[in-house]
Simulated assay, not measured.
Amino acid sequence: MSDAKQINPVVKQVLELGPTVLFFLIYLWIKDDTFVIGGIEYTGFIIAALVFVPILLVAMAILWRLTGQLSRMQIFTAVMVIFFGGLTAWFNDERFFKMKTSIVYGLFAALLGIGLLRGQSYLAYVMNEMMPMRQEGWMILTRRLCGAFAALAVANEIIWRTMSTDAWVKIETFGFPIALMAFLMWQFTSLQGYLITDDTDDAS
């Protein structure tokens, strides 16, 4: 939104990415330990997942306090983390926390897909003020990003079901975000011709 407060980009990145990195570090620290709480044994992974929830909420609260807003994607992700973190603790089953990533990516793909079926780009509603682009460009980006989210959802399902927890944590922390960021940078570069600039307006 246009009335959002501007903060130091480094601080913003720390608040957005810091919780995930902290989860990774905490997991590495306690992954081989077992914790008994209320007579129930919990693995280091489950404890790290539970600790991740308040860390994420604190980071989001600070971000909201500094900027005056949170994106719908951030709020949705936080809700999913809380919900699946709760299921993980309640059932003492790490699979719930692992499948969270598949569901988040899958829902993003589904939402974008619904918009495409209606001939609309929901990305344009969210990002057009930040990056003005012609409708044709938004539709191309939406189709590609819909496919990318679907591919990430499938990839996560394959990884957590067939690989070790160590491998999943590393891919979840670094692999998926880097892959998504690289994909977006590639898309923004390839769609430069659709961006609306002052020169484009003058030419038209």
Rank of each mutant, 00 (worst) to 15 (best):
M1G: 14
A4C: 08
I7T: 07
N8T: 04
P9Q: 03
V10T: 07
V10P: 02
V10L: 14
V11D: 02
V14Q: 02
L15A: 05
L17D: 05
G18A: 06
T20W: 12
L25K: 04
Y27E: 05
L28C: 04
K31D: 10
D32G: 15
D33G: 02
I37R: 04
G39T: 04
I40W: 02
I40R: 15
E41L: 06
Y42L: 02
F45T: 05
I46H: 09
A49W: 02
L50I: 06
V51T: 09
F52T: 05
V53P: 10
V53Q: 05
P54Y: 06
P54H: 06
P54C: 11
I55Q: 01
I55N: 00
L56R: 01
M60V: 00
I62R: 04
W64T: 00
R65T: 08
L66I: 12
T67L: 14
Q69F: 03
Q69L: 03
S71E: 10
R72D: 03
R72W: 06
I75V: 12
A78D: 03
V79T: 01
V79L: 05
M80T: 06
I82H: 08
I82D: 09
G85T: 02
T88L: 08
A89G: 03
W90K: 07
W90V: 09
N92G: 01
E94P: 02
F97T: 08
F97K: 07
M99I: 14
M99Q: 14
K100A: 07
S102W: 09
L107W: 12
L107G: 08
F108Y: 13
L111I: 04
G113E: 00
G113Q: 03
G115Y: 10
G115K: 09
G115H: 07
G115W: 08
Q120V: 05
Q120G: 04
S121G: 07
S121A: 13
Y122H: 14
Y122R: 11
A124F: 02
Y125L: 11
V126G: 00
M131K: 15
E136I: 02
G137F: 10
W138M: 09
M139L: 07
M139A: 01
L141I: 02
L141V: 06
T142H: 14
L145T: 14
G147F: 12
G147T: 01
A150K: 13
A153E: 06
A153R: 01
V154P: 14
T162G: 11
A167P: 04
W168V: 08
W168N: 08
I171T: 15
I171M: 15
T173K: 13
F174W: 11
G175Q: 13
P177F: 09
I178V: 15
A179K: 05
A179V: 10
L180D: 00
L180N: 04
L184D: 05
L184S: 11
L184W: 11
M185T: 08
Q187R: 10
Q187K: 07
T189N: 14
L191A: 11
G193I: 01
L195E: 12
I196D: 11
I196W: 04
T197S: 12
T197D: 01
T200Q: 09
D201K: 04
A203P: 00
S204K: 15
